[in-house]
């Protein structure tokens, strides 16, 4: 396993974006998979630094560690992940993220994921809390290769306890590598829309599993289960507090 953590060239520093790049690729010579981890970009922006926790022949486990206060107005994080054919990546986060009052400005959080033939990604996202006054544009785009597997956990919390919701515009786009859409969703949640879109709830906890149909556990959390048209399943629970809304049994079954 080769590990590099270089800073990206200084040219990228000018666009105000903090970039995190994760590349996992099998070794053509049949040795250990190669991983490349890089961060770079604007010095004003906090960084999500990928820390290698564990590796084996065809897999790696990484923790995405925040450096600097986040998430504040003007922050723009760009996370680009490519998992090469036949390799397996697991991402964990040491803690949740809080987006603070942005006083009329906004922050951006973009994630791009490409999964090669037979590759897999398991990402145990921790709660993302949109405090009152925050305004975050989150996008997640995924391209799935043939026989790729994705298990993605996300928890959105609108407002800290007893607080008004912040504003989150979340866009999720998953396609296969032929361009066929699997899941396309935009949620625009703010203090006005949230009560209508989420009822009286403030926590949206989702687990997305895109995998071979045989791998989707049958009896797990049927009450919150949405089987997608092209295969794969989304489990989504709405709740008023994080602990009661997270579906640990479901995540344990799909991760």
């Amino acid at each position: 396993m080769t590990t590099l953590t270089p800073e990206l060239p200084a040219g990228d520093a000018l666009d105000g974006v903090s970039r995190t790049t994760i590349r996992l690729q099998s070794d053509p010579a049949g040795g250990r998979a190669r991983i490349r981890l890089a961060t770079g970009g604007s010095p004003q922006c906090p960084v999500l630094r990928p820390m290698l926790l564990e590796t084996s022949v065809d897999r790696a486990r990484i923790s995405l560690v925040p450096e600097g206060a986040m998430l504040l107005a003007g922050d723009h994080l760009d996370i680009d992940i490519a998992v090469g054919a036949g390799t397996h990546l697991e991402i964990v986060e040491p803690a949740g993220t809080v987006a603070y009052d942005m006083r009329g400005r906004h922050a951006t959080w973009d994630v791009r994921i490409r999964l090669g033939d037979g590759a897999s990604l398991t990402w145990a996202g921790e709660p993302f809390v949109a405090s009152a006054g925050s305004d975050v544009r989150r996008s997640t785009s995924v391209v799935l290769g043939p026989d790729a597997r994705l298990a993605l956990r996300e928890t959105m919390v609108l407002g800290r306890y007893g607080e008004w919701p912040g504003r989150v515009r979340q866009s999720t786009r998953v396609h296969d590598d032929a361009g066929t859409p699997v899941l396309v969703e935009e949620l625009s949640l703010d203090p006005v829309s949230a009560p209508h879109l989420l009822g009286r709830q403030r926590v949206v906890s989702t687990i997305l599993l895109l995998a071979d149909p045989d791998e989707v556990p049958a009896g797990v959390s049927p009450e919150s289960r949405f089987d997608l048209d092209t295969g794969g399943t989304l489990w989504r629970r709405l709740g008023t507090d994080v602990h009661a809304t997270l579906d640990h049994a479901c995540w344990a079954a799909v991760r």
Binding site: S171, P181, V184, E185, E186, L187, S188, H196, L197, L198, G199, Q201, V204, E223, S224, R225, F226, R236, L238
Partner: peptide, 19 residues
Amino acid sequence: RPEEIPACGAPQIEAWAET
């Protein structure tokens, strides 16, 4: 174009539909 179709989700309505 198909990709221009808006994708505005409504999690609570979707949950009610399933129930």
